[in-house]
């Protein structure tokens, strides 16, 4: 199935980019994330436990960030498996700066669902995937806005993933 959308940020593009590449932020945004460990360069392994409606699941997910083109685009690969089935996806994330500050994020991805969820839950999958995606991005917006507020109050602390010369 296709997952596409647009998310608007008040925070500027660089802040959003930083958030998108910050494992702590990603962990906070992933719905039901119980743990996330680095497993290589731009590779993370997370354990997610969530329920949307009747479907509850515990998933082990591998996230891979590739094709980084800061601060504009990257490709996110997701490989997850759990009791209800497995999930495999790839999506591109594009960040565009808005005039007057702010940024717009466009995501365009393909999600393959397999296993029990695919064969029983066809009519729920679309709704649930969209819901989880929405949750992820609304938390990302929160995270980005709070980073902005923080950075306005406190001195800039160099962050490993930001582009300092």
């Amino acid at each position: 199935m296709k997952l596409q959308g647009e998310v608007a940020f008040e925070a500027n593009r660089e802040t959003v980019w930083d958030a998108l590449n910050n494992p702590e932020v990603i962990a906070k945004c992933l719905p039901g994330c119980e743990s996330m460990e680095p497993a290589g360069e731009d590779v993370f392994e997370a354990v997610l436990k969530f329920g949307v409606g009747p479907i509850t699941g515990q998933y082990r997910v591998t996230l891979k960030i590739t094709d980084k083109n800061p601060p504009q685009t990257y490709v996110l690969q997701v490989d997850g498996s759990g009791k209800p089935g497995f999930v495999k996806g790839q999506g591109s994330i594009k960040l565009q700066a808005q005039d007057g500050g702010g940024a717009v994020l466009r995501y365009d991805g393909d999600l393959q669902i397999g296993g029990l969820a695919a064969r029983i839950g066809q009519r729920m999958i679309g709704t649930i995937s969209k819901q989880l995606t929405k949750q992820f991005f609304s938390r990302l917006v929160e995270a980005a806005e709070s980073t902005t507020e923080d950075s306005q109050d406190s001195p800039q602390i160099p962050h490993p993933s930001s582009n300092f010369p």
Binding site: Q112, G114, G115, L116, A118, R119, I120, Q122, R123
Partner: peptide, 14 residues
């Protein structure tokens, strides 16, 4: 089935 061979009709709902 979908193009990945996942069966879509695994219950009498579908």
């Amino acid at each position: 089935y979908d193009e990945n061979g996942q069966i879509l009709t695994g219950s009498f709902m579908d």
